[in-house]
Write a protein that binds this DNA or RNA. Sequence first.
DNA 1: GCAGTAATTCCACTGGATGGAATTACTGCG
DNA 2: CGCAGTAATTCCATCCAGTGGAATTACTGC
Lengths: 248, 248
Amino acid sequence: MERKSPANRSLERGLALLRAFRPGSTLLGNGELAERTGLPRATVSRLTQTLVAGGFLQHDQAARAYRLGAPVLSLAYAMRQGSEILRAALPLMRETAENQRINVGLACADGEEMIYLESVRRHRASMFRHITAGSRIPMELTSLGRAHLATLPKAEVERMLALFRARRRAHWPALQKEIRAAIAAVERNGYCRASWQPGVIALAAPLPGQPGYVMNISLATERLSEQEIKTGLVSLLRGLVQEVAARL
Amino acid sequence: MERKSPANRSLERGLALLRAFRPGSTLLGNGELAERTGLPRATVSRLTQTLVAGGFLQHDQAARAYRLGAPVLSLAYAMRQGSEILRAALPLMRETAENQRINVGLACADGEEMIYLESVRRHRASMFRHITAGSRIPMELTSLGRAHLATLPKAEVERMLALFRARRRAHWPALQKEIRAAIAAVERNGYCRASWQPGVIALAAPLPGQPGYVMNISLATERLSEQEIKTGLVSLLRGLVQEVAARL
DNA sequence: GCAGTAATTCCACTGGATGGAATTACTGCG
DNA sequence: CGCAGTAATTCCATCCAGTGGAATTACTGC
């Protein structure tokens, strides 16, 4: 028997509509929204009207569709201001990225994905795949995601794995092995490694005492030997999370 | 008789709760939320639970209060990706800020405030008052806000003025004069001027053909003479909005 | 202008939302 | 350590707001 917290259906649905907007689907009509959320059209129509009235959506007359409105930007700004963790970590992240000439990231979990709170990169014009604050990356493929998984209770991990399995039928056996190995690595050594973006290797570690938060460092593979990883980067990451945790 | 669009009360209220989070009040408990929104406590309690379940709020156990969650960051990212205007304007804003050594802003209205979509400044470490994407600034005091007012229908302007009047009883006569003069200036010359932050002067102009969007340029007063304003900056701003509008 | 599609409004129904009151969970102080 | 004081949550009877299928209306592209 699932313990159902008294949830407000209309609000849930309204939030689901907002969540349907993603990079790549930034312009959605009522029909598309209804399809993506599985809600009846009439309901979507009414909810979008409310969202528009509140400024959270803008109606694009020409495209017969909606976009996210400026208030969400404002919320994000308030959110960043309010995040103690980000405030504590950011200066250190900047410093580390600069000194070590690597990328440093801070992320937290949202459902089956990870969301970057911040990603400080050495080269501001970035690598081809565009990653910044607010970017979503898959949990099952990334060092950040796997490091996060390692902090969850066993039962929760299995639940997540079941979800991933459904999404990645194709390479599941190999992928599952990787994920479980990463979790074991985090439990043993405090960090895990992955290479989601080709040519980029990343190490990630959970922030001690801050459930849900994970940090990573990443750099181009060409720039390092196996040796260097074992020595410099691991202790760099360890030092980073320790220091950030200490500042909280 | 007010034409009431069929609004969803629960959703409206949920959004109101989110909007209660601002820079400066980033950590709000149920009680404070109830007070700020005027909603009954029981209702707030249930709605916050839903917002937490959706990830939009995080419960801070220690503070007995809520913060905004990472998904709002993600929404903001999607919003920026989806804004054609921002995409069209940003390169030009960067270029102008760099070449002319000034700050260039793009904003739009939200209720009685303006929200910066982007503010590109010459010195990245900024002036004392921290302004970035998502920052809210008062409509009645700023060049951006007044330029926006000038684009509204007369009746709407009067409605807004009534609101400002209630908020600024003290200096209202002078302030009203300033605002009306600014509106007239925009209608006559296409731009208006204001100095909200002491020591900083700003010129703002609406984006032609894009109702609700306004751009500004600003710089330290010490750096210019009256002469320079009339000549260089005005035509710079005019050229800027023209070019951005042309790219849409 | 007309067909075809998408969005909105209508409306009877009903169950989800509501909020005052009671209960429970905390916290800080003596 | 326990108790007072406060804040949050749960309860519950009431009822109205939300719902969604169907009808209507608004668009758009041909």
